[in-house]
Computed example of a mutant assay.
Amino acid sequence: MDELRIKIQDWRDIVIFGILFGLILSGGIYIILEKSFFYGVVFGALNGLFIGIYSSLLITFLNTEILANIEKKYWNFLSFVFSFFAGFFGNLTATFLCSVIDIPILPNYYENQFIFASIVGLMTYFIGFILYKFVSIRNKSETIEANLAKKELEILEAQLNPHFLFNALNSSAELIHKDKDMAEMMLLNISSFLRQTLLKKTKISILEELNFVQNYVWIENIRFNQEIQLHIKNNLEDSNYYIPKFSIQLLVENAIKHNKIASKLLNIEIIINKNNDGNLYIDVIDDGDGFDDIQFGVGLRNLRDRLNLLHNGKVIYTRAYNQTIFSIILKDKYENSNY
């Protein structure tokens, strides 16, 4: 449940906050009582450290094993109990450690340590309640942003160019009169292509996308009399990487659409690498006529927006050595991430 989700960095920040709060509070009390500021800082830091550790263990157990399985009306009481005991046992542990390493504690503290531990437990609950509200608001905000991004992606995917389908079906209709077996195979490939487009996944594996592209090029080659040559160099050690659906296919489609295939053979090469900077690079290179001033139409803008939403990625264009190169650069969230 999103409102119970506390990230590792949250616990790190909570422990750091606890240490700072404890050493400042305890150090201040020691100064007021004209005791050693250093000992006050040590005692306070130990309190903050152990309260943070107990909190992370107890609250994580509470959130994952108890609250998720019971009615919400019991949450506040159980949160109070677990937070109280995190502060209570954290204080007792710090007190015990100070006695072991000979850190002087305030007069009469040991005689009343359970009272002091109870006060610390109450303070822990109130501070934890404030932090919980902050984390809950943050989680709800992230959930809203994720849902908005998902809706935006669905809109972008719905804009994908349907012209390919119309052209492929027209080619199939013409092919029926010439080669019925080839027409049947083409229709089966179109069916497979459409089935892929209807998948409810925002991202698919690189292998799935490459199979998708090969199927697409096979269909297009029927239209262009086998004038398109596709070459794939996948240099990844494994293919457990996920990319936006249609991302490579769209660039291959772009290469086919903007070149005069009837006049000469078109070679398209796909090269996939993971560089030392940790980014994933996918280059789609063609040796067609190209164009010096590329304009990002609906398809390329669509791809650019999806890459940015999903990966903080981008698509760039270059023209060199009589080749047109479109490069997809994925900066994060591309490994083991098929949501």
Rank of each mutant, 00 (worst) to 15 (best):
L62W: 04
I268L: 10
T95H: 07
L300D: 03
I270K: 07
V120F: 11
L230M: 11
L62K: 05
R12F: 14
I204K: 06
I137D: 05
F38W: 09
I19A: 08
E157T: 06
V81P: 00
N167T: 12
I222H: 04
I6M: 12
N170F: 08
I282D: 02
N240A: 07
N302D: 10
F212A: 07
D283E: 14
K264H: 13
I29F: 13
L58D: 00
E71R: 15
S327N: 12
S79I: 09
A158H: 10
F134S: 11
D179H: 09
Q323F: 04
F82H: 06
F85S: 05
S263C: 04
Y321P: 00
D102A: 13
N322R: 11
F21L: 15
D13G: 03
L57T: 12
A262C: 00
T64C: 01
K264E: 13
G87E: 02
I24F: 14
V41D: 00
D181F: 10
L58V: 03
R306F: 01
L20P: 01
D283G: 01
L250K: 07
V213T: 10
G40T: 02
K201Q: 13
L97I: 15
L153T: 03
I285L: 10
Y317Q: 09
A183N: 06
V15N: 06
I70M: 10
R306K: 15
D287W: 08
L49Q: 03
E145Y: 11
I53E: 04
I101F: 14
E152S: 14
I29R: 09
I204P: 01
K178I: 14
R195C: 01
L266P: 01
L198C: 03
T324L: 05
L78K: 09
D286P: 08
G22T: 09
L33I: 06
P244Y: 04
N273E: 14
